[in-house]
Design a binder for these strands. Sequence first.
DNA 1: CAGAATCCCATACGATACTG
DNA 2: CAGTATCGTATGGGATTCTG
Lengths: 125, 125
Amino acid sequence: MKVSTSTNQSFDPLAGGIFPAACPSRTVLDHVSSKWGVLILVALAQGPQRWSELRRRAQGISEKMLAQTLKTLEGDGFILRDAQPVIPPRVDYSLTSRGSELVALLVPLLEWINVHAEDIVNGQA
Amino acid sequence: MKVSTSTNQSFDPLAGGIFPAACPSRTVLDHVSSKWGVLILVALAQGPQRWSELRRRAQGISEKMLAQTLKTLEGDGFILRDAQPVIPPRVDYSLTSRGSELVALLVPLLEWINVHAEDIVNGQA
DNA sequence: CAGAATCCCATACGATACTG
DNA sequence: CAGTATCGTATGGGATTCTG
């Protein structure tokens, strides 16, 4: 599959699958692009992490949203939940191989955003 | 910049900028990952398009959301609005160079999702 | 520590109608 | 054609409290 990487103007491997209103692609896209999905995914790119670590990393996330986001991502097979039966409880979250594939595509995007964000919100060229 | 593409485990060019709650990166990320942002951007990857074409492409979008999304993306400098003073009105939207950069990162992501979506929502490995 | 449960609100979003 | 205006709803998401 070829995709030229700049000032790209013609392709259409998406035509059949992303744009229809009720398609699997839309569902997955919504999960990933939910307010916290990307952040949790990318946070896990740095290796397995515990609940509280994720909570600290994704600043501003509520417990409810963390739980919900983790469940969705687990349901999609992007992350793995490893609960150890100890007291106090310890649960580690990590990327599955599918999750790693996705994150590999997400990281460049987030990096680009991170680099250009300031100019963008400041309205600079 | 190197980013290994699987079972990737260490980098952190994001540490400083994406995770803080009130940072430009978050703002831009929210714009891009809004329900319709990605779709409109990627639709425009196929070349300049008119309002009604975009509306047809991004199936399910309401006029309100299309207008709002286009304004946000224009405000961020991702797309260009070219209104021609003719009757009936004709307005073409196109990607700016900044928009093209972004889209170049978005397309592989959407393609990946498009390919794997079915398995993901069906709960298959 | 790692959640689940509940309550509640803001706003994202859709449907419809109207306009230059 | 390319929008704007208005209204109503659904739900994303926060705060708080409770539990194994």
